[in-house]
Computed example of a mutant assay.
Amino acid sequence: MATKPTEPVTILSLRKLSLGTAEPQVKEPKTFTVEDAVETIGFGRFHIALFLIMGSTGVVEAMEIMLIAVVSPVIRCEWQLENWQVALVTTMVFFGYMVFSILFGLLADRYGRRKILLISFLWGAYFSLLTSFAPSYIWFVFLRTMVGCGVSAHSQWLIIKTEFLPTKYRGYMLPLSQVFWLAGSLLIIGLASVIVPTIGWRWLIRVASVPGIILIVAFKFIPESARFNVSTGNTQAALATLERIAKMNRSVMPEGKLVEPVLTSSDLWGVFSSHSVESLLYIYSSEVYPTTMRALGMGTSGSLCRIGAMVAPFISQVLMSASILGALCLFSSVCVVCAISAFTLPIETKGRALQQIK
């Protein structure tokens, strides 16, 4: 019997395949920096109020500095002073400014810009009022030196404004602030022309102290710098400040969590040395230095500039009386050095975000 041919059978061995399911990727939470928040919120009513209040500190500073120029001729006659003694008054004011500018810069980077600015105004107003009761030339010089110490921290107003302003507005809002300094100079000259001939220079000093006292009250409306709070780890306070600004400007906050950027420094020591001969340094300094050392950078640069302010009275009071040409040549040489120094500045800050170093 014929057998039926068998067909080859292919046996498939099915194995259980373990299909590994890909783990779902964890979505990174959104974050933003103070710089992002400032740019998102934009310019608004808060910045206008900040401009007026912080700019008014320039009025007070100008009045205290220019006060010596309008009072010097009167005290020269009252106390029978020599030229060098009159020059010494201005020199000592800027000596106090030079010494305490660095100290207040360190304290502002450690304890906050707003606190140091408030202390400086209390200090300045107190010693300015005491100056009006100075019984002698020695006391007058000492008390005005103490006023110079207090005025040295007034530059914190520019730091606060810089750290709150969006990038595109810093280019013209900060230079515009110098109008307040000019206004203060004109105001003290106008007051002197009325008060000194009638009730005397002591009352001029008392009246000139009033704007500073008023500003102390106005400071309660200005918050601490959000950039400073973030740099010290106080992100909750920074967030509250930014939310307040957004509400006042009728704007919105960026989405996510507030974090601190970590950057590295570069070329900052070159800026220190270059600014030692640069008188109009404040705007550039407030932009080029990182948050963690912005107040110290401005304080140190401003301190070095006071060397020129200390020497200038002796040039105008003493050297110019001996040789006008010699004094003018000296001033011209300093201007040439400043121009050369400006070309050596290593960083351009136009359109650049404010830097922050951990």
Rank of each mutant, 00 (worst) to 15 (best):
M1S: 14
P5Q: 13
T6M: 10
P8V: 14
T10I: 12
R15Q: 13
L19T: 15
L19Y: 11
A22L: 10
E23M: 05
F32Q: 05
V34I: 07
V34Y: 03
D36V: 05
V38Q: 03
F43C: 06
F46R: 05
F46S: 07
I48K: 11
L52I: 15
S56F: 14
T57H: 09
G58K: 01
V60W: 04
M63Q: 08
M66Q: 15
I75Q: 02
C77S: 14
C77L: 09
Q80V: 11
Q80H: 14
Q85M: 10
Q85P: 09
A87Q: 08
A87P: 12
L88M: 12
T91K: 00
T91E: 02
V93G: 04
I102M: 13
F104P: 00
L107W: 11
L107N: 03
A108M: 07
A108N: 07
R114Y: 07
K115D: 06
K115T: 15
W123M: 01
W123F: 14
Y126E: 03
R144L: 10
M146G: 04
C149D: 02
G150V: 06
H154Y: 12
E163D: 12
L165G: 04
L165I: 04
K168F: 04
Y169Q: 12
G171I: 02
L176K: 03
Q178W: 08
S185E: 06
I188K: 02
I189C: 06
I195S: 08
V196F: 05
P197N: 06
G200V: 03
W201V: 07
W203I: 03
W203A: 11
I205T: 14
R206I: 11
P211M: 04
G212N: 05
I213L: 14
F219W: 11
I222H: 06
N229Q: 13
V230L: 00
G233C: 02
T235P: 00
T235W: 00
A237F: 02
A240K: 12
E243C: 00
E243H: 08
I245E: 06
I245N: 05
A246D: 10
A246V: 08
A246P: 08
K247I: 01
M248V: 13
M248K: 11
M253Y: 00
K257L: 07
P261M: 05
S265T: 13
S266N: 11
L268P: 00
V271E: 03
V277Q: 05
E278D: 10
L280S: 11
Y284W: 05
S285V: 09
P290V: 06
R294K: 12
L296R: 11
T300E: 01
G302R: 04
L304R: 04
R306G: 01
R306T: 09
I307G: 12
G308P: 07
M310P: 08
V311L: 12
F314T: 08
F314D: 10
I315Y: 06
Q317C: 03
V318P: 07
L319Q: 11
M320F: 09
L325W: 08
G326L: 08
L328M: 13
C329S: 15
F331R: 02
C335M: 14
V336M: 13
V337K: 02
F343T: 15
G351V: 03
G351D: 13
R352N: 09
L354K: 00
Q355Y: 05
